[in-house]
Design a protein around this nucleic acid. Structure first.
Lengths: 143, 143
DNA sequence: CAGGTAATCTGGACTTATTCCAAAACCTTC
DNA sequence: GAAGGTTTTGGAATAAGTCCAGATTACCTG
């Protein structure tokens, strides 16, 4: 019988299909990174991805982690969330949603918030088309 | 008669008052940076501020530029706009508004967009209060 | 106005995330 | 199994931002 991923995510084959569907050839490193990301909706930094991928026996280099995350972001498999100049997260939840960033704890949370939709954007500068719409609400603990 | 700033902005005294109103002591360097920023609504990076301030005869060090911009941002004199991990802008327009960032040209533009207001935010995680609400629409030239 | 204390500024070293690079490893396909 | 393109790799390079300890300045009090 087929072995499923140990982290309740997609099976390796499903991950490979998802990469191929976007025209990304499924190398060992890319599949590993994708399996990690797609296991569940989550926010990971490049560092965290590097650390977790390299916990397993076969590893990936720092350069590959960056290449791959950028590739995935460009292809829309993952969403880059820029929270802090030195805190970029990769969000494996690709459905439309926005973010709450807790400045005290560093925790990033998704929020459903339909009152902004791509369809009804304000007038943009002429000759430009929207690529992403990112709403980030920064909060503090209200002690 | 009183000499006005050469860049159609606030007079030096008005700048000093604005700093003092926020409890910031008006040192030479801070006044210089504030005069530059408050001359008109604009988006400048730390680098640009450094470069422009040091164009004049009396200068400020890199460390001071960073200290001062962070101080101004904390005090609400200026708004930090994080557009790209390595592109932080300081926006001297402190009224409520949002941003359009052109990925091709690197130009950041303000937009008035009242359909999101601090008053009607979605439910935030319990025990947190909003600090900033930032909407950034990233666009490309629609060649 | 002089002296003292706290706040601020400074240059340069340091840190840290990310990118760059040229060589090695790896797939395909014939 | 050799050719040719694509990926990966380790390590060097880059660049924004922070840190630090000493020098300077601002500010208060008498």
């Amino acid at each position: 019988m087929k072995k499923m991923s140990d982290k309740q995510g997609l099976s390796p084959d499903a991950v490979i299909d998802r990469l191929k569907a976007k025209g990304i050839s499924a190398t060992r490193q890319r599949v590993q990174i994708a399996e990690l990301l797609f296991a569940k909706p989550q926010h990971l930094s490049a560092d965290q991805v590097l650390e977790r991928v390299n916990r397993e026996d076969s590893t990936a280099s720092k350069a590959t982690i960056y290449n791959t995350l950028n590739l995935f972001a460009r292809k829309g498999l993952v969403r880059e969330v820029i929270v802090d100049p030195s805190k970029v997260f990769y969000d494996s939840n690709t459905s439309e949603h926005h973010h709450v960033y807790n400045l005290d704890s560093g925790v990033l949370t998704d929020i459903e918030f339909t009152s902004i939709n791509m369809a009804e954007l304000p007038p943009l500068p002429t000759g430009t088309t929207p690529v992403t719409v990112d709403l980030i609400i920064r909060v503090r603990e209200s002690s």
